[in-house]
Design a protein around this nucleic acid. Structure first.
Lengths: 111, 111
DNA sequence: ACGAAGGTTCGACGGCGGTCGTACTATCGA
DNA sequence: TCGATAGTACGACCGCCGTCGAACCTTCGT
């Protein structure tokens, strides 16, 4: 049959205009999420969910990815069984100028 | 007697070098605290504790001021019975370049 | 000396968010 | 078709943080 037996996996992303500063700051205020963002910034492109170094379990990490996505910080899409993540840098810069670079720079300087 | 019967009121401020990005972001991630910061930025100088517009009680507000002070965001000192607050803009800029302006700008743009 | 004004301290409470393990689904490769 | 791999969903737990009211402490004005 042409139809897959199960629904394909898609991901919902908010428009940046629908994201509040509150959401963005809450997203960036968690240490684990900031690790994710920094590793993504350092990678400079896409990165699979399983390739991040964090101190938490897989299910917790999934939760953090969801928060970041809903805050408009990252974009996610599937390729095969892996889920790729990337920063929405340009859009974020348009919505909250200077915020992401400031946080990433400070985080890297601290580490 | 030369000694006052009670201790005069002094306020402890951390060095900005002792403040973590975590603290700063947590401080700025609360809506009430962000109101305080914005009103302070808009005032451009010092502002008494009682002169802020917030939706919370006095005791809660005291708590928020403490958090902001311990995060190095504001400086406080007494003059008579009133406590004056000001932003530690320059020091903050040196420690976390671009962070405060980005947050304040975004907050003002949103409002 | 006294009262009022401006803040603080303390304890209590409630809700939310980060964490985990387990069970589950989707895709790929053999 | 089957197993392995990658990630998700769900429920539970727990600790922390924002909130309040009441009692208290300073300082000023009278």
């Amino acid at each position: 049959m042409a139809r897959p037996r199960t629904t394909p996996r898609t991901v919902e992303h908010p428009e940046l205009s629908e994201v509040s500063l509150q959401q963005a700051l809450e997203a960036l205020a968690d240490p684990v999420r900031r690790m994710v963002v920094c590793q993504l910034a350092q990678a400079g492109g896409e990165k699979g969910c399983g390739t991040f170094e964090t101190p938490v379990s897989d299910s917790t990490l999934t939760h953090h990815f969801n928060v970041l996505r809903e805050a408009g910080v990252i974009r996610q899409h599937y390729r095969g069984t892996t889920k790729l993540n990337s920063l929405r840098e340009a859009e974020l810069e348009a919505r909250f100028p200077g915020l992401l670079p400031a946080v990433v720079t400070a985080a890297e300087a601290e580490a």
